[in-house]
Write a protein that binds this DNA or RNA. Structure first.
Lengths: 344, 344
DNA sequence: TTGTATGCGTTATCAG
DNA sequence: CTGATAACGCATACAA
């Protein structure tokens, strides 16, 4: 806790030049074994660690990673942060968080100010901001390492970690079909988001494999929030006949469906099956617990962090070797059941 | 996005020395109006912004704030981050997040490594880590600006933002009493946390004002998690007679109570009133929605950020002028009702 | 009010 | 394999 020591102290005590100490720190191969050991001994005795700012000034690196996002689900964000941190703190990087506004005219400018101000070594971009191609182009052009978390491949694999939402939604469709449901409704997310269209397409495709059609009047667009989940469900559940199952674009909205059904006296899953997407904390807490799709968010975040650090330290080829795809999986809980003819 | 310009470029183009540019940047008063304008014009033309690393090297400041925490509720963390960012991004600071382990032997060392490595200008510490006096002492001794978010005043006001959990719990007690409940149970948090003991004490005190005693067999200690909420509730709800109300130390556990009651066929709020603490997102999403105590977390975070930046920029006296106390409030929803004699 | 010179702790250039 | 020495971009004591 006393005055922190510098490379000069190390050099003096080890009886070498600072250049040599620098070599040791950075793992240069061209240092004699004896010299290296001596320097390392002093380093640990002094509990010395290099000054990041000075290092950055000289080498234009900051050991800082940025996380760019716009107002995601708190639980999703938390998962991402954990995943990223698990990797980056191991490797000596810190994480700087940066909310921004998806719709802002100055989004790109804002992000670059953020990046330049703090001299970020790289950034991880979360959906839906990650779907913005002009941001990605700007990042690429600026030569700034970046990775996008998305629901469908939108970029080179060294810049992508994607969950196959389409396939996952198709799996949900198959599950519904096998339960005997045929009159199924879907509460979609905003159509401007790729994640929304992917899930909808996947669901339709999955259904059609069983000869089931997702009728246009059974599709309502929500906003991925609990509140719009309630609204959409209310619309769906005041029509006659009632659908026997509802698939919502995410868990928040599915929770809203539960609420609306409860208010309308509709029993779940007896009269209505409900499923969500994400498997965030909420999904397992509500009653009945939600059947949903689990996205391995934490793992995606870890991959993103690994990828970006590979890119930073070994240049982009290495980044390609980190997996870029993860598979979401179906989690069956209590909110879905076999189709039963409504009691007269 | 082209090569970023430096203070030298500005100086050259404005026809002044870099010392003068530096003065303008830092808002020194002793600069001629004409000179200042000229410099500012060039600055905006060049879209120049000072290199934080160089700045830090020269003045030992980083414009980085740290957030230290151990595994808090995701929703709580999200609220905090938002609050802090609202303030600090206005004032030119970035936020670096840093999870750590409350019980770790090397906690203090870890935190200092984090702080020193990134040359953080200050740190905000979240509960329960914020309750660790030895960490605070070390921070103080090192002269590093810091602010603790706590449930009871543990430090000088310039280092504290506290929510009066005791008073809030007492208010909940009053509310229960006025609903006619007298056989009340409490699921506490871990007793090693001050927040837990404060809430329990407050609740007891509030009850005793109405001549109601919180019987020892009606107190069970949980772990602030959903799962332990279920377990504790199960113990409470398999005793005879049943308590008519349960107050849980937080919303997660209260949600667990809802689940346990549901499984046991106990109707809420008709047969049992349930309340939580925090008012996190979950509270309003479960069915029935939870009566709870709302902690103004976001506001606390804003205050903490303001306080710490005051400390950094104007030295500790100013930090004292930022409010250090906030009052949680009772939020009545659907999970509580007037006491009704159990039907024979 | 303005400018000069020096230092902050590293990395990088170029010799040896 | 190792060592002087010059950047890196900015702030600040000290002059003018």
């Amino acid at each position: 806790m006393h005055k922190t020591s510098t490379i000069n102290d190390v050099a003096r005590l080890a009886g070498v030049s600072k250049r040599t100490v620098s070599r040791v720190i950075n793992g240069s191969l061209s240092v004699g074994d004896g010299t290296r050991e001596r320097v390392e001994k002093i380093i640990s005795e002094l509990n010395y660690s290099p000054n990041t700012q000075a290092r950055g000034l000289a080498s234009s690196r900051s050991y800082l990673l940025g996380l760019i996002y716009d107002n995601p689900d708190a639980l999703y964000l938390d998962d991402v942060q954990r995943g990223v941190l698990e990797v980056c703190s191991q490797l000596g990087y810190e994480l700087v968080v940066h909310p921004c506004r998806y719709r802002s005219e100055t989004l790109v400018q804002d992000c670059f100010n953020f990046i330049n101000r703090s001299k970020l070594d790289g950034v991880i971009v979360l959906p839906p901001v990650s779907e913005l191609d002009h941001l990605a182009s700007a990042l690429k052009e600026a030569g700034r390492p970046y990775v996008r978390l998305t629901s469908v491949l939108l970029d080179e694999t060294r810049h992508s970690v994607v969950s196959d939402d389409r396939a996952a939604a198709a799996e949900m469709a198959r599950y519904f079909a096998q339960l005997g449901h045929s009159d199924i409704a879907f509460i979609s997310g905003p159509q401007r988001y790729k994640s929304s269209t992917e899930r909808m397409e996947g669901f339709k495709l999955g259904l059609s494999a069983y000869g089931i059609e997702l009728k246009p009047e059974r599709i309502i667009e929500g906003n991925n929030t609990y509140e719009t989940g309630i609204e959409c469900a209310r619309q769906l559940l005041t029509q006659q006949p009632l659908p026997s199952a509802i698939f919502a674009n995410n868990d928040q909205m599915a929770a809203g469906v539960l609420k609306a059904a409860h208010d309308l006296g509709i029993a779940i899953p007896r009269q209505l099956s409900v499923a969500g997407f994400d498997d965030n904390l909420l999904a397992s807490r509500v009653i009945p617990a939600l059947t949903t799709i689990r996205r391995p968010v934490r793992q995606m975040a870890q991959l993103a962090a690994s990828k970006i650090i590979m890119d930073i330290e070994h240049n982009s080829k290495a980044a390609n070797n980190v997996a870029a795809k993860v598979a979401p999986t179906l989690v069956v809980r209590e909110s879905t059941a076999r189709f039963a003819e409504p009691a007269a």
